[in-house]
Computed example of a mutant assay.
Amino acid sequence: METKIVTLAAFHVAGYRIEATVEEFEAGLRQNLYDKLIENKDEIKHRKNDQVLLMQLYPSHEDFNAKVDSFTHVLCYEVNVPEGMPPGMIIHHVPARSYVTCTHRGLESEIGDTYDYVYGQWLDDTGHVPECYDFEIWDERYQPDSVDNEIDIYVALQS
């Protein structure tokens, strides 16, 4: 799997936040939030583009397991100005940071294998330490039920 380290400037996102396990999120909450976000996207006045981001914010305790513990999911859009959001949406600030990035290719239901590689083998091999969040970019290549699906993953790294 091809990975690279990139540094991104700080940015803001606006969207819907929910606390859930991966299983709960994938069992229907994701689709409900996604549909709601798409339905209300034109109400986001300062939306930068049409790429949906899935921000995943993890607790910082050592025994956290993303596969079984609840954590914060934010389905959102990047915004140029962090104001004027529709009711029920949140604004989240993402600090400037370095990330390891790679592209998951294939069914979205198999994305766990890509995360296992990055959070397991890649981190072990490189000695980098993850920060407590990552995000996915769902652009025109996002076709969750197709083998042609592509999702860019960004895992935040500690400085």
Rank of each mutant, 00 (worst) to 15 (best):
F11H: 15
Y58M: 10
C102F: 12
T7C: 09
D113G: 00
H128F: 12
E108T: 08
D63M: 03
D69G: 01
L37C: 10
T114R: 03
M55T: 07
L29C: 07
V79Q: 06
V13E: 03
E150Q: 14
L54T: 06
H61A: 05
G28Q: 07
C132T: 14
S146R: 07
I38N: 08
K4E: 12
P87F: 00
D116M: 02
E23N: 15
P87Y: 02
C132K: 08
N32H: 09
N149Q: 05
E78K: 09
E19Y: 07
A27S: 15
H93Q: 04
A27W: 04
Y99L: 00
H128L: 11
W138Q: 02
V100H: 01
Y99F: 12
D148L: 01
V129K: 15
H104M: 00
H61L: 06
R97Y: 06
P82Y: 14
Y99C: 04
S109E: 12
D50P: 04
E110G: 02
V79T: 06
E108F: 12
A66N: 04
S70F: 05
T21M: 07
E24K: 13
L33D: 07
H12D: 13
L53W: 08
I90P: 04
A10T: 09
T101F: 10
D148F: 03
I18P: 10
H73P: 09
D134G: 14
I91F: 11
H12E: 07
E140I: 04
D63N: 13
C132Y: 14
K4I: 05
T101L: 02
C132W: 15
W122T: 02
A9G: 13
V74E: 05
A66P: 13
E78D: 11
H93P: 07
F135R: 02
H46E: 10
I18H: 15
G112I: 02
K45S: 05
P95K: 04
F11S: 09
E26Y: 12
T72G: 01
D145R: 13
